[in-house]
């Protein structure tokens, strides 16, 4: 093992959904290891994440994932500076395995333990790669479990401006893909199909585009897609999958761009930051890039491996909390609905 005495080394554990993940970062930004053991194969036959199966897999995978994170980073536990863990939001049983592991590691090593919010982690994935990024900015976090518009004033200071009132973006992708029998997870499949499709082919509703708030709703869009497909089937027509997927995606993205821009203008910021698994969607990235360029705003998004759930982003968020002296105690608990607040 190489001694890295001069460096601040953070080990983070993330188990909020179906990825068992551990990572070690140095100085809050250099990724030494970023291990993600995906359980997607175990959940595929159910068409979504089964909480009990996710929790069972976490107990089996957590030890080897932490061991691999240390070994790839060539760091021994005794060389670490602090430990970070996701406290929520997420699946109760899944979060509990991560926190039990993190507390146990903290107790065994005497290292300080820091708790972070999973959504905060998705935002901080950007700080790992864009060293020039500084708050304040508007962040859109879009994933399988979340669609949130957040104003981040400074490190650790957030204001949740709006969120989805029903389905998260990634959830809508999964459900549409499931309905069309395209496979699971739906996001990458629909993204691929869309590349050959025309986003203006079918006019799907842009829910809540004109509302004054910053909330989103996707259930109406989902029903519209479903009705459209049912009508085509009844008429015996072929379903134009690429056009359908591209139009469905465009309906989601249009509203997201519109509300993100309006929030940025209202808050007087010139930076927009994307995060979460759906931020890996190629059309979403491209459309945001074009629209932000038009109005002269800077856009940041993580590279694709850092968009999906990982522990490096949790380590990064924890690093900034560690700098402020924040710690959690050994009687801490998880919160499946942990609010993103503070400031």
């Amino acid at each position: 093992m190489v001694k890295r005495l001069a460096e601040k080394l953070i080990l983070a554990i993330e188990t909020s959904c179906d990825e068992t993940a551990a990572a070690i970062i140095a100085e809050g930004k250099i990724i030494l290891s970023n291990i993600v053991s995906s359980q997607v194969d175990f959940h595929r036959k159910f068409g979504g994440v089964v909480p009990e199966i996710a929790s069972r897999k976490h107990v089996e995978l957590i030890n080897p994932v932490i061991a691999e994170a240390c070994s790839q980073a060539r760091v021994a536990l005794k060389d670490l500076t602090a430990l970070v863990v996701t406290l929520g939001p997420g699946l109760m049983g899944a979060l509990l395995v991560g926190l039990a592991a993190a507390k146990s590691l903290s107790y065994a090593t005497g290292l300080p333990l820091i708790g972070v919010n999973h959504l905060e982690g998705h935002i901080y994935a950007n700080f790992l790669e864009h060293t020039d990024l500084k708050p304040p900015f508007i962040s859109l976090v879009v994933s399988g479990g979340h669609t949130c518009l957040i104003y981040m004033e400074d490190h650790g200071r957030y204001e949740l401006l709006g969120e989805t009132l029903d389905d998260a973006a990634g959830e809508a992708f999964d459900k549409i893909a499931g309905f069309l029998k395209l496979g699971y997870p739906g996001g990458p499949i629909i993204d691929d199909l869309s590349k050959q499709g025309d986003p203006r082919a079918i006019k799907f509703p842009r829910a809540m585009l004109k509302t004054e708030d910053y909330d989103f709703s996707l259930s109406g869009l989902k029903t519209a897609v479903l009705n459209h497909v049912t009508r085509l089937k009844e008429r015996g027509e072929e379903i134009p999958l690429p056009d359908l997927c591209a139009s469905f995606q465009a309906a989601i993205i249009d509203v997201q761009i519109h509300k993100t821009l309006r929030a940025a203008k209202e808050r007087g910021v010139d930076k927009v930051v994307l995060g979460g698994g759906v931020a890996a969607n190629s059309s979403l990235r491209e459309r945001f890039r074009q629209e932000m360029e038009k109005v002269g705003m800077r856009l940041f998004y993580p590279s694709i491996p850092l968009c999906t759930d990982n522990a490096a982003m949790i380590a990064c968020a924890g690093y900034y909390r560690w700098l402020k002296g924040e710690r959690i105690s050994l009687d801490a608990n998880v919160d499946p609905n942990l609010p993103l607040c503070g400031g």
Binding site: F46, G48, V50, P51, M92, D167, E171
Partner: peptide, 12 residues
């Protein structure tokens, strides 16, 4: 298949 991937967090 009972699954959970919503924003509401865990079912239980």
């Amino acid at each position: 298949a009972p699954t959970c991937r919503g924003r509401a967090g865990p079912p239980n």
